[in-house]
Design a protein around this nucleic acid. Structure first.
Lengths: 328, 328
DNA sequence: TTGTAAGCGTTATCAT
DNA sequence: ATGATAACGCTTACAA
């Protein structure tokens, strides 16, 4: 049996109220009393029961992070950011993967029904839409990376449209006119915005957008990138450059290009998105749009904390950055 | 204010004990009573307070997973396995990254001092050693992937020695005699065992082991793989094959090889370890030793659950598998 | 089959 | 500056 606050109180010859006071560093406690209590705490190896504290304060000091895919380093970096600042504020991080619809549903129900977390950072586009559609607005949650422009839900993200435009503008500046676009799932805002950015750049350069140059494959897994590239490379005229909305897709695109006997960037230039760690290591190394994943996570938690405290919040757009490497 | 069990009881015209009974599906409750209660629960939108339940049962139905690096997909897969079966058993997963010594220390202290989790799955070699050294044995925890052979701590892992031997045997069978070995940190058991496997294979083939063919670089980050390769490739005679103890290191090795103007596998064959998703996508695709990451995670949780329940447990060795691709 | 009530370990209000 | 004590919402003997 672990020591309770009462054991400490008895040992120190004070009341539990006093022990609680030194525990929480609130109110005035006479220095001598305080050190007496601290000695007893040490002597008994006492640790406060988080469960009791949670019940009493109705706060778990935990947040839930909903992640589409644990094995995607993009999300890993964001989670790192979230955790780093959560920890600073005494919060712990509960993780749920929403890869499958079943998992997503369970997570959703738990999120709403049990109060095991004081708030939620949601990285999953589908769940974000669902939360908004269900009008979940009193519960403290924020969107990160993906978001809803018009809903009243705080988010942290980048300017996807401008970022995509930057990428395509770069390709145009290198003389490319036939530029393929590999998108994930256009139901998602980030995907819509990146597509808009792609089209913005083309229009600005006076280049006609060809519908068949746009491949939306519904996800960001490697094989989907290969699939998109196979389709794109079969087109006439064949694109001389391909912009993919994630590094994983870009890798798939390159793989398919190699299989087709094409050299990157000589025969087809490839630009990715995210700048995950492996982007620098791939052969050729990947030219990509870097998102500040770690900061995205940090800011998302800060926003969430404001919501938890009931303060008003305002969404944030963080800067992106184009990283020039070998693939384009 | 969310409805409490008392509200439900009042609404249904029964006692809180009865509500609790239908909540937990225990004891006999008359079907009519049960449905009456269930109606009230639905009507009031009642959800049990996990905090109160935790306090009462002194179980949080949460486990803590200590992970060296979130952005490494190897750990991501293991965490997925852990979470999948944890969820089946009604447990939630708390995540802490132990990348830095500071984070590691904090996590360690929290692990021991607060009872915010019913148990721990530890993936971090350093923390595993520390827990063992500190004689933490009454607290329910298990090691996963890394482990301690002689300590009395349950673990799930693979036969690292045999796996490494398999890899090197394969290289030998392809005619290689000058085989470099890139290890991470030989303070860790898995690293020691893989090195032993490397030496076993050499000995079995009657090939002399050269000390300078072994590079221990202290970690598995990409740049460390490049570093190791630069050293190895400067040797005389130059190794014609390199076995690295992780795919990330293997990728670094290949990168450095390309930079040195060498072709893989023609000039230098490369074998990795883990079979992370990108191993198949790299150019050339990576021949590697696949670990059953997902199963590792699943079994680790199962073992932990046994410990939590106070049942006796026995460590498990899961099968590995060599995956032949293009790099060797 | 159901109800009563004690108690889990805190925090916070009100006295003193 | 400190103490007594009432919650917080649940589970579980024990009683009925």
């Amino acid at each position: 049996m672990p020591a309770s606050i009462e054991d400490v109180a008895r040992h120190a010859g004070v009341s539990t109220a006093t022990v609680s006071r030194v525990l929480n560093g609130v109110d005035l406690v006479r220095p001598e009393t305080k050190s007496k209590v601290e000695k007893s705490i040490a002597a008994l190896g006492y640790r406060v029961s988080e469960s009791a504290r949670s019940l009493r304060t109705s706060s778990r000091r935990q947040i839930l992070v909903l992640v589409p895919d644990f094995s995607n380093p993009y999300y890993g970096e964001i989670v790192r950011g979230i955790e780093s600042v959560a920890r600073e504020h005494g919060y712990h991080v509960l993780l749920s993967e929403t890869r499958t619809e079943g998992a997503r549903k369970r997570a959703y129900v738990e999120l709403l029904q049990q109060q095991l977390a004081d708030g939620v950072v949601c990285l999953d586009p589908v769940t974000i839409r669902r939360l908004a559609a269900d009008g979940i607005v009193s519960f403290p949650w924020v969107a990160c990376s993906e978001f809803l422009p018009d809903a009243d839900i705080p988010y942290v993200s980048i300017d996807h449209r401008q970022a995509a435009k930057d990428a395509v503008l770069y390709l145009l500046s290198r003389g490319h006119r036939n530029i393929g676009f590999v998108n994930s799932d256009e139901r998602f805002i980030y995907a819509q915005q990146r597509r808009a950015g792609y089209e913005d750049a083309l229009k600005e350069a006076g280049v006609d957008a060809r519908a068949d140059y746009i491949q939306s494959v519904g996800g960001v897994d490697y094989p989907l990138g290969e699939l998109a590239a196979r389709r794109l490379l079969a087109l006439e005229p064949r694109p001389t450059a391909i912009f993919a909305v994630s590094d994983t897709l870009a890798i798939g695109v390159m793989k398919a290009s190699f299989r087709a006997g094409l050299k990157v960037p000589h025969d087809v230039a490839v630009v990715g998105f995210d700048d995950v760690p492996v982007a620098e290591m791939f052969e050729p190394s990947i030219t990509t749009l870097a998102q500040p994943m770690y900061s995205l996570g940090q800011r998302a938690f800060s926003l969430l904390l404001q919501r938890i405290k009931g303060e008003s919040t305002t969404s944030e757009i963080l800067p992106h950055r184009m990283v020039l490497r070998e693939s384009a």
